[in-house]
């Protein structure tokens, strides 16, 4: 089932949560809504589900206009960050709930509900836990039960709100891989919300980066990482440095000195601009001509590399540079840096 979201807006108490958002999701696609808290990603997901009402715009599920359908009529599978399992029901009753509350004409028999719940327990690789209660399960198990419960109603789309947000790092990684496999197996159109860029990049076919109620960029992990559409995307995805520069006659100047940079593709008009650099795209060099010059103020060892903290220019702007662990550089040393890749955004 493909989903088309057209010019959707939503405000809470006149505080705008989404402005004019449009997004097309292909059938069978796994999409991540990525952004910091307050970016509107959860609001967008809840609008798709019908848990919130639209202020403006339309949402289509395939050929049906779902904009004003109730949450029950939309037939979506929704998975909540804190599982929202029914505490007083066994695992089997939780999974069968969506079938058991159907009007009697479309309700399967008790035995059939039981059979289907057991089959779903098999699918989520938790057979034999059917008679436990949610309180007796681990977080990872609970979230898988919640997913099985959502799948039981044979939903048109699967919506997950920070599904791994409440889990510890190890479980989160396992479940991520598991969800990807499950998605490939069942083929549901799936939208999930996350603030974890690594999770979004690793899991999703396409990532939707959001900020302040707007979509900043839609693309594959490669597109988002290699050609970020805005300074926000650049600094939100991965580690980043920013330098204040000015463009004069098409050339980049930092602290009054022209920089010799390999040619980038950005066409930025003359005036103030920001130069964005990734820590691993900066190289230490002996050739000082047109390079960035700075003083090392500290070094930090991370797992595979060493990070240098460098102060640059009269305004003492801070840069982080990744160097090999073997590099021996003392504090207060002056270094010159040459960027291998960079992005330039107008500051106007």
């Amino acid at each position: 089932m493909d989903i088309r979201i057209q010019k959707v807006s939503k405000a809470f108490d006149r505080f705008p949560a989404l402005h004019d958002v449009s997004l097309s999701i292909r059938s069978g696609e796994l999409i991540a809504l990525l952004g910091p808290s307050g970016s509107g990603k959860t609001t967008l997901l809840r609008l798709i589900a019908g848990l919130e009402a639209l202020d403006a715009g339309r949402i289509h599920f395939g050929d049906t206009d779902a904009s004003h359908l109730s949450v029950q009529e939309r037939n979506v599978g929704f998975v909540f960050q804190h599982y929202a399992l029914f505490k007083h029901m066994s695992v089997l009753d939780n999974i069968g709930f969506g079938l058991a509350v159907r009007p009697w004409r479309t309700r399967p028999s008790g035995a059939e509900i039981h059979r289907r719940a057991e089959a779903l327990l098999e699918l989520i690789q938790l057979p034999g836990l059917g008679h436990r209660f949610p309180a007796q399960l681990s977080g990872g198990q609970r979230q898988r039960i919640a997913l099985a419960r959502a799948l039981a109603i044979e939903p048109r789309v699967l919506l997950l709100d920070e599904p791994f947000g409440a889990l510890d790092a190890k479980v989160r990684k396992d479940l991520r891989r598991w969800l990807r496999e499950l998605h490939d197996e069942t083929g549901h159109t799936t939208v999930f919300v996350t603030h974890d860029q690594e999770e979004a990049m690793e899991l999703a076919d396409r990532v939707v980066v959001m900020s302040n109620g707007r979509i900043e960029q839609i693309g594959t992990a490669d597109e988002i990482y290699d050609s970020p559409a805005s300074p926000f995307v650049f600094s939100f995805i991965g580690a980043s440095n920013a330098l204040k520069v000015t463009i004069e006659y098409g050339r980049i100047h930092h602290a009054g000195q022209p920089l010799a940079l390999p040619k980038g593709d950005a066409a930025v008009p003359d005036g103030p601009a920001k130069l964005y650099l990734r820590p691993h795209d900066l190289r230490l060099t002996d050739d000082g001509a047109g390079a960035i010059r700075g003083i090392v103020t500290g070094t930090r060892r991370t797992s595979g590399t060493r990070l240098l903290e460098i102060e640059v220019g009269p305004q003492r702007e801070r840069l982080e540079v990744e160097v090999p662990v073997s590099a021996t550089i003392a504090a207060r040393e002056t270094v010159t840096l040459r960027p291998e890749r960079w992005q330039l955004y107008s500051d106007a």
């Binding site: 589900a49 848990l51 949450v71 029950q72 037939n75 979506v76 599978g77 929704f78 909540f80 804190h82 929202a84 399992l85 029914f86 505490k87 709930f97 969506g98 509350v101 159907r102 919640a146 419960r149 959502a150 039981a152 109603i153």
Partner: peptide, 13 residues
């Protein structure tokens, strides 16, 4: 309202 929202999303009136 988490559990209620879950129930509604599963089609319960």
């Amino acid at each position: 309202a988490g559990e209620e929202e879950a129930a509604l999303s599963l089609g319960a009136s």
